[in-house]
Design a protein around this nucleic acid. Structure first.
Lengths: 312, 312
DNA sequence: ATAGCCGTTGCCGAAACGGCAGCAACATGT
DNA sequence: ACATGTTGCTGCCGTTTCGGCAACGGCTAT
């Protein structure tokens, strides 16, 4: 089932590894073979594809164009393979997901477990990273489905869905704020606060609002792990901020309380986007999981908005 | 610049020609070479790609899947080529258009002439056919852009735009109806009528409406050429029906009059769709022309609706 | 039956591919 | 400054693959 020129495969490997010898190791061939294929490719295109640095290869502009084409070819080949396989009833393949941390607590594990219950032959690879890294992984073809904060996305990605969740304060049930239904930022800042570091998107959501306030918040804890922040909040250390997506279980055990944030009377939204490479048709098994993901996030969005109704 | 396996190219040629020997003639190679590549391909996929009939080859289900993949690959290769070429300033390529007859009178020639005035190196191939044939040409990868009546389109096509134009009666300026502003179907059927044959979409637009009427229309002329129907109307032979798109010039010379059709108080719409293959990114020069086409049709739709305002 | 077209198959020369070993260029560590 | 490791590249050569030629059997139309 390998009916594409070695040049294509070799080029792809070199692009990923950034080195001819490394690519040769991955491909189980001699480095000279790889080198020659790249040279031949450059001759046929009529322009160098890589810049030869002392410590490896970097794509030129033309190289990036070819990389895009090769990625389209190989990803579509995957889809073709899965189409043929599904014809003989075998639904197998790997779904590769890149997502931000908010999903790891309940959404993703629930979905994957449920999906694997029905389709045993489909395996998963998930990688948790920052929003911009998620998008980059998708662009580089290292992931099939990406879930990230809905910022501006590059044109080679397609936003499959956009779901908004309320940002809220998370406190232990013994916290003085815990009895309220909603809180304002000012009310939270009267207490010790667990701040997100700039690598987390929560930081970029809250910072502008905090900057608008006259008060300077009292010294607080800063962290770059949503998990850690949640656990700190559960121990009564302070007030953390995140969407309700991440506190499903702890909230059930009644250790944590989620209080939707009110900013001048209107909610603070955290927009979650689901992304896919635009120039690509997904394999059937990936498309199937994607649909479930969109449906599930839509369901959570609906439930949450029903639980905390508001204007706007 | 041919860095894809010969298998791919050969398979594509065989699919298009429907025969190995014919493909070999097109490819300027021996038929044995083509035969062997196909056999190798089938062995690698693990399933026959063609059914060997006495008079040539037909795709199997798996073969159609591979054809889809190969088409994606080759079309994306075209795009890559044009991307590289545009990097060195040379904007050249061929835009292949399949469209229905309504466009040939003014829209398409105007657009192509104007576009070539600005981009000399871009050439055009246009093929006029029925709506369903237009869509099929697109699906088979024989055209880049398709313009057809907006019926249900297959899922492998993407509807880039949908423009609606009023269907109207076309009569010579000496015709008794020519002084009216609008006409009803009943009023038209009182005169000799130039009917469209079922191969034209106008037939399918008008037939249901005519069937609703109690009167049986008087014997009339039937034709399958919009051009012919228009010329007949200009000679006072009868009342023809079409959108205003097709009578730009004659209307300017004041030989023909366009009378928007009223059916029980509401207009009769003719929906025009612009289509491209969904699993494809167009080359820059094709995309550019597509944008102009959409803009121009939108402009005509707007102008027409301004000239003949109505409710709904 | 005959002629014509179809796809397939041996056979063989030509072209492409890959492995091995060695080269110069550069970075790193002592 | 020197040694070491890594990088990409290049002859050389055996292996694999590819393509052209001719021939074969199967089929259709005349």
């Amino acid at each position: 089932m390998r009916f594409h020129s070695p040049s294509i495969q070799y080029f792809h490997a070199v692009r990923r590894t950034g080195s001819i010898r490394a690519a040769a190791r991955v491909l189980n061939v001699a480095s000279s073979a790889v080198s020659r294929q790249i040279l031949k490719l450059e001759q046929e295109v009529g322009s160098p594809l890589f810049e030869r640095n002392a410590r490896g290869l970097t794509l030129t502009t033309v190289g990036e164009m070819l990389a895009r084409h090769v990625m389209n070819v190989l990803q579509d080949l995957d889809r073709f393979r899965s189409d043929v396989a599904s014809l003989s009833g075998a639904w197998s393949g790997t779904v590769s997901i890149a997502c931000i941390e908010s999903l790891t607590e309940s959404v993703l594990p629930d979905l994957i477990a449920s999906h694997r219950g029905r389709a045993r032959r489909v395996s998963f690879t998930t990688e948790v990273k920052g929003s911009s890294d998620v998008l980059e992984s998708l662009s580089r073809g290292e992931a099939d489905i990406g879930i990230a904060m809905a910022l501006r996305h590059p044109p080679d990605l397609r936003q499959v869905a956009l779901k908004r969740f309320r940002l809220g304060a998370v406190v232990a049930r013994e916290h003085p704020l815990a009895r309220r239904k909603t809180v304002t930022l000012e009310q939270c800042l009267a207490f010790p606060v667990i701040n997100a570091l700039p690598e987390l998107s929560i930081y970029h959501l809250l910072q502008p609002l905090i900057a608008q306030l006259s008060e300077t918040p009292e010294p607080a804890i800063q962290a770059n792990s949503i998990d850690l922040m949640r656990e700190l909040a559960a121990r009564g250390v302070g007030v953390a901020f995140q969407t309700q997506l991440g506190i499903g279980r702890l909230s059930r055990d009644s250790q944590l309380v989620f209080l939707p944030l009110d900013n001048a009377g209107s909610p603070v939204w955290s927009d979650l986007g689901i992304y896919v490479r635009a120039e690509r048709t997904l394999p059937a098994y990936t498309e199937s999981f994607l649909q479930e993901l969109v449906r599930e996030l839509g369901e959570r969005e609906r439930r949450e908005n029903a639980a905390y109704p508001q204007t706007q």
